[in-house]
Design a binder for these strands. Structure first.
Length: 158
DNA sequence: GCCAACGTTGGC
DNA sequence: GCCAACGTTGGC
């Protein structure tokens, strides 16, 4: 069992969109970075925990919890000449971009980027590293526990 | 819209 | 394999 942080632009797919989808599940389409692809292709397992992160928006931060919901499989948009994710060098025989399905487990009160930065236990999170751009990053069990505690504390404070 | 940081591309 | 040019990401 591993843990991950996956960025999504809420204008594309938000945690609400994922929760509204059939089975609360969305295909994690459009990743075109080799490191992020390799995580999905080589390291993820169905059931892995996911922090659903909203990026490139007014309030960036962790917006929900999710889980990996499939084995890796080819991202169909790479074959679609009309898609912005089209890749002319990819073929059905030799797909270049792999993805997984992600099932939203629940929406959380937003844990804003500034709040993540405020916790010393989270200082080593890859997402917080200067210049980080990776849309999928591994999360350590300790970081996962810390963030889940933040979420729980927030809920019981309401 | 700015811009730092990083990834990718392609000529050599 | 080097590296300059270019494109993208993403917080601010």
């Amino acid at each position: 069992m591993q843990y991950w942080l996956m960025k999504s632009e809420p204008g594309e797919v938000s945690i609400d969109d994922a929760l509204a989808a059939p089975h609360h599940t969305v295909p994690w389409t459009g990743v075109r970075n080799y490191q992020a692809r390799n995580f999905m292709r080589d390291a993820m397992r169905a059931g892995d925990g996911v922090l659903f992160y909203h990026s490139s928006c007014a309030e960036p931060g962790i917006a929900g919890l999710a889980e990996v919901a499939s084995a890796p499989y080819p991202d169909d948009t790479q074959f679609d000449a009309k898609s912005k994710y089209f890749d002319a060098k990819a073929t059905r025989e030799n797909p270049r971009w792999m993805m997984v399905d992600v099932r939203a487990v629940g929406k959380t009160d937003l844990i804003a980027l500034a709040e993540l930065r405020a916790h010393p236990e989270l200082a080593d999170m890859l997402i917080l590293k200067r210049g980080n751009r990776l849309s999928i990053t591994p999360v350590t069990p300790a970081e996962w526990r810390c963030i889940n505690q933040l979420i729980t504390a927030r809920q019981s404070a309401q």
